[in-house]
């Protein structure tokens, strides 16, 4: 497992760049993922998606289904892709510090 340092803070990540421990999430992590995912500027909409993902994860122990995320954020999937070019799994969940999506992906 590799570690990355951003603004003086260290994070343990896996080979796909996902945070290894959700509890280590911090604003520096968001900044790191923003650079990695090629997002120019963080908007309130990004923060809203991240917050909703984290609330859902803390409450339910899983990441929401795409339809649920759409419904909770009131963003269409197309708009989520505009915010996070890699999509809700590789982009938004990574930024929120959630575990890497599993299954036949």
């Amino acid at each position: 497992m590799a570690t990355v340092e951003i603004n003086g803070k260290e994070f343990e990540i896996d080979e796909d760049g996902f945070l290894l421990d959700y509890n280590n999430f911090s604003d520096e992590w968001v900044e790191y993922v923003r650079q990695q995912e090629g997002i120019d500027e963080l908007t309130d909409e990004h923060t809203k998606v991240v917050t909703i993902l984290q609330d859902y994860y803390e409450k339910n122990g899983i990441a929401p289904m795409v339809r649920v995320l759409s419904k909770l954020t009131k963003f269409k999937l197309k708009h989520i892709y505009e915010l996070f070019p890699s999509g809700p799994g590789k982009g938004a969940c990574k930024m929120a510090g959630l575990p890497k999506p599993t299954g036949c992906v």
């Binding site: 290894l20 959700y22 122990g61 899983i62 599993t102 299954g103």
Partner: peptide, 11 residues
């Protein structure tokens, strides 16, 4: 040690 960190347990 890692289960809760890298898995979504309900899944």
């Amino acid at each position: 040690e890692y289960l809760d960190k890298i898995c979504e347990i309900p899944l």
